[in-house]
Amino acid sequence: MSIEVRIPTILRQHTKGEKLVSGEGETLAELFDHLDAANNGLKARVVTEEGALHRFVNVYINDEDVRFIGGLEAKLSDGDQVTILPAVAGGM
């Protein structure tokens, strides 16, 4: 089981500058726990103390916003791609 995770510039201080890291987990929550072991502090930037996604962080599994597919309990499969992005104002 391997999940590829794309890290935004703003969080790469936790991944030794790496843009792409890989992790494991049956759910997004498990993936973040797994990633945190190797990338100290990453989870705390993405998940609040109350156990929700940070308001200004968006996470996508294969381009689907996880808030619509179960949030941190969203299921993962081998080969999935996870993308973390800060929430920014789009074009207008």
């Binding site: 935004p8 510039t9 703003i10 940070h54 200004f56 800060p86 920014v88 789009g90």
Partner: peptide, 19 residues
């Protein structure tokens, strides 16, 4: 949702995020 290049997400910290 358009996913732009990295420059567009170049915030100094996450609290500058915007919804």
């Amino acid at each position: 949702e358009p996913r732009y290049g990295e420059l567009v997400y170049g915030l100094r910290n996450l609290d500058e995020g915007f919804v």
